[in-house]
Every structure is written in C-alpha cells, then in structure tokens.
Design a protein around this nucleic acid. Sequence first.
DNA 1: TTGACAAATGACCAGTTAGTCATTAGTATA
DNA 2: TATACTAATGACTAACTGGTCATTTGTCAA
Lengths: 277, 277
Amino acid sequence: MIKKQLIMEKSLELFAKQGFEATSVQQITEHCGISKGAFYLSFKSKDELITALIDHFMSQFISNIDYVVKNTINDDQLLFEFYYATFDSFQKQSDFARILVKEQMQSFNEDLILKFHSYDRLIEKIILEMIENLYGEDVKHTKYDLIYCIKGFMSMYSQLFLFYNVPIDSNLLSQSLVEKTNLLAKHTTIPFISEDLIDMIKQPIKDDVTKEQVLELIEQKLIELGDSIEKQSLILLKQQLLEPTLSPVLVKGLLENIRNHPHCKWIGFLLRRYFGF
Amino acid sequence: MIKKQLIMEKSLELFAKQGFEATSVQQITEHCGISKGAFYLSFKSKDELITALIDHFMSQFISNIDYVVKNTINDDQLLFEFYYATFDSFQKQSDFARILVKEQMQSFNEDLILKFHSYDRLIEKIILEMIENLYGEDVKHTKYDLIYCIKGFMSMYSQLFLFYNVPIDSNLLSQSLVEKTNLLAKHTTIPFISEDLIDMIKQPIKDDVTKEQVLELIEQKLIELGDSIEKQSLILLKQQLLEPTLSPVLVKGLLENIRNHPHCKWIGFLLRRYFGF
DNA sequence: TTGACAAATGACCAGTTAGTCATTAGTATA
DNA sequence: TATACTAATGACTAACTGGTCATTTGTCAA
C-alpha cells in the first residue's frame, strides 16, 4: 500500500514534466528506486497507474469546488470562493494540474479521453449550478456561454503560474475574475452556445445516423414548432427522407431555411450528414 | 518538392488524430504510399517534418490576423474581423488547429516548445496592437488582462468545433465574442496581469528581422515559384529592399499581390513589418 | 538453525521506434 | 543501345517499449 503511494507521487513528477506517453515504466521505477517487478506488484499496468492518478486528483478537485458552491452562504462571496478554491487546488497540486492542462485533449488512450471528458462534464455541471444560483433567470439564454468563459478564465490564468513559475496573488486574481464574470453575466446579450449546441456535444458522435433517428427527432421538433418557414421546410425534408423526390439543390435550400433557427441546428447538422452535403 | 508537400499533407492528418509522438514515420510513409527511404530524402528527420509543418501553418495564420488588424479601416469592425479571421483559419486548417491545441503545451521536444512559444508571443503582440488601436488609453491598466481573455475566448470556443465536430456559425460566434470583449474592455477595473508580470514571463524573443533574412527567404521562394504575378511582385519587392525607389503606395500594392498566395504570406508579414505598414 | 512464505529482482520477451545504406528501378543524354 | 545519374526501395540496426517470470532475498515462527 505504502509503495503504491510512493509510485503515484514519484510518477506524477515525471508525468508532469514529460507527459504520460513519454514517461516509461523504467524511468518511474528508477525514480522510485525499485525494480520493474515491484512496480507490477502494485499496479497491473501503466494504464492502471495513470487511471488511479486521474481519479485520485480529479475527485479531490471536484469535491473541493462542489463543496464551495454548495456551502457558501453569502452569494456575494460565492464566485470569489469558487475561483479561490480553483487556483488554490491548482497551486497545491500543481504537478497534476500541469498534467491536466497538457493531457486533457491529447491522450493516446480512448478510455482516458472519456474519463477526462466525464470529469469535465462534472465541472461544467458545478459551474452551471453556481451560475444559476447567482444570476437565475437573468442568464437563461447566456448561461452556457458563461460556463465556457469561466472555463476559459480558469485555464488561461492557470497557465500563467503553471508554466511560467510566476508567483501569484490568488486573492487579487480571484477578485479580478469575479469582476470579469459579473460583467459578462450581467451585460451579455448575444449568446453563442445554445441549448441545442450543448445537446450536440453531449451526444456521443456516432458516425452513422440512421434515418429512423432523424425522423424521430424531426417529429419531435414539428410538435414543438409553430407554423413557420422552418416548420414547412422540416415537413418537406421529412418527406424527402421517406421518399427522395426533390433535387439536391432544393434539399440544400430547405436545409438553408432551417440553418439559423436555434432549435433546428442539430437536425440540420444530422441531415447534412445524411444527405451527404 | 512535390513529395515534400505530399508528406506534409498526409502526415498532418495522422498527427491531428494521434499527436506527434504517437505517429510513427512508418505510418506516415504507408499513408503516403512511399518507402521509408523516400521520406528521409525529403526530410532529414521526423523533427524536421514537424518543424516544417508548424512553421508553414503558423506563419500563414499569423499573417492572416496581422493583415486584418493592420488593414481593417473601420474600427467598429476590427474586432469582428479579427475573430472571424481566427475561426475561419481554424476551420480551414482544422487538422493543424487540432494539433495546435493538443501539442502547444505538451511537446516532448524542447525546441518545439520554444517555437510554439515564440509564435504565441507574436499572436499576443498582434492582439495588443489591436487593443491599443481600439481602446487606447482607456485600457492602459487592463490591456494585458484583455489579451489573456481574448486568447481564452479563442481557445475555448475553438475546442467546441475542433473536438466535437459541431458545425458553427462563425458570424454569430464572432459577434458574440465582440460583445464580450467590448464589455471587458470598457468596464474592467481590477487588472491582474501587470506590466511587471509580463516582464517576468517574457523571455528574449528575436523581434526584429534583418533585411538579409528576408532577402534570403525571398531568394528561396523565387526558386520555388513558377512565373506569376506573385513572382514578379517578389522580384520588385526584393529590388525595393536593396534600393528603395518605389513609392509606399506601390509597395503596398505589391504586398497586396502576394497576400493570398499561401507560400508568400509569411514574407508578406515580414515585409509589412520591415516597411512599416 | 531450519523451513516456509512473501517480497523483490532483473534478465528476458516480443514488439515498436527512428534512422541507414547497399541495392535496384527509372530516366535522360550521347 | 549504352552510359551516367538520380530517385526510390526495404531489409537492417540499435535502442527502447510494456510486460513476464524463474530466481533470489528478507523475514518470520518453530
């Protein structure tokens, strides 16, 4: 057990410097002063070690910020406490934070990407909860943009001290970001990330969409939609799906009709793929 | 020459999917349908290929946004044009953009990190120039924060379409970010990134390009280029470098001639700086 | 001191890597 | 056709990878 911890600590240093792939088990065992066999007594594989590291630190980080969001009574302080907790965690576990920034998008292993991804979702969920607590209905249309901006702040400013070894004043940094976040929350009027777009991201991107799935989605939208160009276009597109009669250029025009309607973007996306545009 | 291009194009696809390290020369040569030996006739090493790719695309991207910043007359449109050019570039060269996001912080090779770094600094410089043009003295204390926020927007929103295969409306996205940027520029009062902090981060970066370096580059391009408007323009620009005789407006016209040729963008950028446009 | 058992070792395996080079194929000139 | 030269090949090397396992070492109780 104690050896497991030793390996985790020592390997973290190497991973932070070189990345997962570029760090060999040999290097790790040398850095720990143990043999290769000993390593495999503690972990079944290199992947298992990596997974253990990610789970260990991510669960800690997420619990931290979740606690802050759920237990800060004073709304005026919530944002500040959130940012403070974030940068505090990042500084205390800077080796892991470095890995996080480096590997999040890059990992060779498909499972790891999924893992990072699902943790990322959790973080977004916590941020969303915070935003809704703070601003409520005011940010109904801009809340997803706000999530992305907050995440952008977190990652850009983290890089400052993670990769440049600059000493930072977490207090000032958090205050500064609180002001920026409030500004965006209170005055943004042009959202980019719609609920629809979020749906697109959420759904695992399967390459092939079946006709049936699209039809089902269209049916659903037809119920929601009032009479409009979009609705009429959707009806024609549905017929085209069932029995192709229109020429490609007409289909393309119909797709263009629904392109800018926020609730039809996903369907448009799927149809473009289905029709091969 | 033509083979070099083939290798660059095909390897880009693999690098974008798997990253630099996880892509072997073997895979690249198979993907190209050539032998291993043929690869090493075009590039001295795998590293040289990677370096060539980065230089090729980064110089194009930087030239693009620099041109926009320097040549958008209407201040009201500048920010929009900047964001639009950014996302346009990213979409048109999405394979490279994916690499950029993935490898920027991660590269195994020390030289690559420095390379990315110096390009990053160039981008920051262009953004700074834009901000100072737009807001002048108003953002004297917050301009460095603004740079980081803009970079944060660029990277977070890029990830949306780069990694989720989501179709995006560049127009709306740019508008949305223009509003956010303006909000931050006009109302931020608590800066975090001071000039001091920037100094700490700054590592020496060769800012100035000598006349000789540009001349050398031009000579090289002249050999590669077939007879064309671009080539004739380059010849005249070379003469202008050696012995200034043409009026600024003529020089500007020549620069315009080579602007959209993918192999001349970098030279265009350097020349614009050299002639002070 | 002996014997039993777990802990730890490192030589070894099969596979992959970047890079080389003797050999061959292709092509243009005489 | 013969010669000269370049372009291209792919078997090869040496180094390294994650992972295994027969062997050795250390630590107990009897």
